[in-house]
Design a protein around this nucleic acid. Structure first.
Length: 508
RNA sequence: CGCAAAUUGGAGCAGUUGGUCAGCUCGUUAGGCUCAUAACCUAAAGGUCGCGGGUUCGAAUCCCGCAUUUGCACCCA
């Protein structure tokens, strides 16, 4: 099988430790990557950090360390966080990695030699104390919106990327590939706000700070943000290096997961860079929404968030994963609160899923000493359940391609809910009192175990830890994606001592 | 100013191309059951689908206007 799949998260800016929002992006990407791997795809999952720039230079000097020391610390923290969340990345790329630096320099030179990058002059309104450039509309009464002081018109020699050359090609590409930008509302935003009014050439170098990748042929300049950052998706695959095997195997990317604020860079600048490099464009860019805290966005400067580890330690990694995947609808913003997190844990994970496993295994032990096979004493009521079990995989596949993660979980939990209902409808405790109904009782339990097994397989990408526990509890050996359908001749020997999958959280 | 998006019972959300579209989850109330993590199942209460017009045999669903909120245009998952 040579089906390949390449998925990326943004590379995050390590000016401060990562928060639950970074976790959200990364958990989505991780879940998709895991799903594809389990579904037989040769998958490459990339995440990382975007470490250059003035802000980090400044932060570092404030703390009295070098920029590299500063980011090293944050990156170590991030890697620990990803470990705690079971993030299965294949590579964590850092823009300070040597191969990345080399590649960016080659890309820059190549674009320059081709004439896509030219030398010009950057003009801007600059506030010296704040070290920030502002546009005219941002100014408050003609002064710096941050400190209220005068701004100066500053000119700086800089290199520019000619976006206008590719405008028509880009517009055409977007029109002809309706799935390229997801969700669609973002696509309209890009076309109307940026492409149609005309693209301005993009400033791609700076001389005002040093913490960046030097331009090889003009060492006063460092590469500015986007050529540096976006190239990571290529440099991780060895683009322009001695070994381009990964590049040949995985490019173009299947999906870039990004936050809605950087959709623009991924759907305008990035495709244009790739066109200029004569490379195929990524198949999909998904701009997801944000987690909103107390009605406002997560803000590093407001500090209105807590270390995600607090939630992980308190409620478990899978609970956090489930919450963000389930709570936020496709492409929109979603609220994050501890209260809602607890609500999800109790109502979905504990009551519906955990309790179903617990009661089913309990009955298997109580009535059959833990050993269940399919006695095939079926009744009409079994049919819908069995059909649901067998069709779950294909329904899930479809939703995954549409990146409807929340709906996938909804679907799977619908099946689990149906099982709870099925138990009430079939009343196993009544069957157990009648020796002649023994066969029927066993069939009911078998069907339930099948539902648990199959739904568990499909939950594995989203909750790797808890699903492992379910496998141990029902002792299933058939856990591949290919076996995610109703199989009628398995034999179960369930655990004698099941422990709750998720404890209910008592609210204070 | 511009370009977008949102506004559906107490909360959070579904509602492709207009005719079971008024639905789901949580919450509330009542009942049932006992295999189970005070869990599970059933039922009920609760919305004139932001407001005002219009198109249509018929609109939450299309058109116009208004209001409120949010996003983007400048760095931010």
């Amino acid at each position: 099988m040579n089906k390949n799949f390449y998925i990326t998260t943004p590379i995050y800016y390590p000016s401060a430790n990562f928060h639950i929002g970074h976790c959200y992006s990364t958990i989505i990407a991780d879940s998709i990557a895991r799903y594809k791997r389990l579904d037989g795809f040769d998958t490459f999952f990339l995440t990382g950090s975007d470490e250059h720039g003035q802000k980090i230079e400044k932060k570092a000097s404030e703390t009295g360390v070098t920029p590299k020391e500063y980011v090293d610390k944050i990156v170590a923290n991030a890697k620990d966080l990803w470990k705690q969340l079971d993030i299965s990345y294949d590579r964590f790329i850092r823009t300070t990695d040597e191969d990345h630096v080399k590649c960016v320099q080659k890309v820059f030179k190549k674009l320059y030699d081709q004439g896509d990058i030219y030398k010009g002059e950057y003009k801007g309104l600059y506030c010296t104390p704040c070290e920030s450039f502002w546009t005219e509309t941002q100014l408050v009464e003609g002064k710096c919106p941050d400190c209220g002081r005068e701004v100066q018109l500053v000119k700086e020699e800089a290199y520019f990327l000619k976006l206008s050359n590719y405008q028509d090609r880009l517009e055409k590409y977007i029109e002809e590939h309706p799935d390229f930008i997801q969700p669609e509302s973002r696509k309209n935003e890009m076309i109307n706000n940026f492409i149609k009014p005309g693209l301005e050439d993009l400033c791609v170098s700076r001389t005002s700070f040093k913490w960046g990748i030097p331009v090889t042929f003009d060492t006063n300049h460092v590469v500015y943000v986007w050529i540096d950052a976006l190239s990571n998706y290529l440099t991780a695959l060895g683009y322009l290096s001695d070994d381009e095997t990964l590049m040949k195997k995985y490019w173009p990317a299947d999906v870039h997961i990004v936050g809605k604020e950087i959709v623009r860079f991924h759907t305008i600048i990035w495709p244009i860079m790739l066109m200029a490099l004569d490379l195929p464009l990524p198949k999909k860019v998904f701009g997801h929404g944000w987690l909103i805290i107390d009605g406002g966005k997560i803000s590093k400067s407001l500090g209105n968030y807590r270390d995600p580890r607090e939630y992980i330690e308190k409620y478990g990694k899978d609970a956090v994963r489930y919450y963000v995947l389930r709570e936020i609808p496709f492409g929109s913003d979603g609220n994050f609160s501890e209260e809602a997190l607890i609500g999800r844990i109790n109502s979905d994970l504990a009551n519906v899923w955990g309790n179903l496993v617990n009661r089913t295994v309990g009955m298997a032990n109580k009535y059959f000493d833990g050993t269940i096979s399919n006695s095939k004493v079926n009744e009409d009521i079994d049919k819908p359940l069995v059909d649901d079990i067998s069709s779950l995989k294909s329904r899930t596949d479809k939703l995954l391609d549409e990146l409807q993660i929340s709906k996938i979980l909804e679907n799977i939990f619908d099946l689990l809910r149906a099982c709870n209902k099925y138990i009430d409808d079939t009343t196993p405790w009544v069957l157990a009192k009648d020796e002649t109904k023994k066969g029927r009782l066993e069939t009911v339990l078998y069907n339930l175990l099948e539902a648990i097994r199959v739904s568990n397989i499909l939950l594995m990408p989203f909750m790797p830890t808890s699903t492992k526990k379910v496998i141990e509890t029902i002792n299933s050996e058939n856990n591949s994606f290919k076996e995610a359908k109703f199989i009628d001749n398995l034999k179960y020997t369930v655990s004698k001592t099941p422990s709750p999958l998720f404890e209910r959280i008592q609210s204070e």
